[in-house]
């Protein structure tokens, strides 16, 4: 059985996640500046701190994430970058789970599955109660 270095894989995936997300966020902001707005909002609105005017997370339709990116809409690039960032630590748990499966450590397979369950509960179930 091929042994794999969990620490190294975790380190590399964390770094890749941060870099990918930073690149996406920065390009999104540049596109927003160049286009003078995004997702139907003007530049002034996007930069505003007022909750009644500005563009905040729940207003961005995630279903259109890739269409938005294809249409070179900056807001979707920022949103993509932020979601890559949110998913980055989750990959760590997945990698840990794989390593526990490899060593057949039942207790830790259960514990890491538990963590993943709570994570996806927060992402998929809780939002339904919020809206």
């Amino acid at each position: 059985m091929k042994h794999f270095d969990v620490y190294r894989i975790i380190s590399v995936s964390l770094r890749t996640g941060v870099i990918l997300s930073m690149v996406s966020i920065i390009s999104g902001i540049v596109i927003i500046m160049v286009n003078g707005g995004a997702d139907g909002y003007t530049l002034a609105q996007i930069a505003s701190y007022s909750k009644s005017q500005t563009l905040y997370s729940s207003l961005i339709p995630l279903n259109n994430l890739f269409t938005g990116m294809y249409q070179l809409d900056g807001a979707f690039y920022v949103a993509f970058g932020l979601w890559v960032l949110i998913f980055t630590p989750i990959t760590v748990v997945v990698i840990a789970l794989i390593s526990f499966i490899e060593t057949r450590n039942k207790l830790y397979i259960a514990l890491s599955s538990c963590v993943l369950f709570v994570l996806f509960f927060a992402m998929l179930v809780v939002p339904h109660f919020l809206s």
Binding site: G28, I46, Y49, T54, L55, Y56, S57, S58, L59, I60, A75, V78, A79, L82, I86, L119, A122, M123, V126, P127, L130, S131
Partner: peptide, 11 residues
Amino acid sequence: SIYWYSGYIQI
């Protein structure tokens, strides 16, 4: 993720 759906993340 809960903050996201509650609209607390101003991009």
